[in-house]
Computed example of a mutant assay.
Amino acid sequence: MRVEIWSDIGCPFCYIGKQNFEAGVKEFAGKDDLEVVYKSFRLDPTAEKEPEGSMAELLAKKYDKSVKEAEIMNSQVADAAKAVGLEFNMDKVVPSNSMDAHRLVKLAEAEGKESEAMNHLYKAYFTDGINVADTESLVRIGTDMGLDADKIREMLASDQYKEHVITDQNEANQLGAQGVPFFVIDRKYGVSGAQPPQAFKEALTKASEE
Results as ranks from 00 to 15, higher is better:
C11L: 09
M145Q: 02
A60R: 01
K123C: 12
M118P: 00
T135M: 10
K61R: 14
D134G: 06
T46M: 11
E52S: 07
K206Y: 15
C14S: 15
A108T: 03
W6Q: 05
R103F: 13
D33S: 08
E27V: 08
D44I: 09
G30W: 14
G53F: 13
F88S: 00
Y38E: 03
L34C: 05
Q178N: 10
D100L: 09
G17W: 07
P12S: 12
Q19A: 15
P181L: 10
T135Y: 01
E48W: 00
L58V: 13
I152Q: 06
D186F: 10
S54R: 04
P45W: 08
N74T: 05
L58E: 07
E50M: 05
V3L: 14
N89I: 03
R153N: 08
G179W: 08
D44V: 09
N74Q: 13
L156Y: 01
E209L: 13
Q174A: 15
T205E: 15
Y122A: 12
P196H: 02
C14R: 01
V37N: 01
V25Y: 08
E111W: 05
F21S: 00
L156Q: 00
M99R: 01
E87M: 08
K188C: 07
G10R: 02
R2H: 09
N20Y: 02
S7D: 01
D44S: 10
G129N: 12
V165W: 11
G24H: 02
K39H: 11
H102M: 09
Q198N: 05
G30S: 09
Q19T: 15
G30F: 15
C14W: 04
A157F: 06
R42E: 15
L175S: 06
L121Q: 04
E210L: 15
Y38K: 02
Y189C: 02
V37G: 01
Q76K: 10
K39T: 07
A149Q: 01
F13L: 10
I152G: 03
S158F: 14
I166F: 14
K162Y: 07
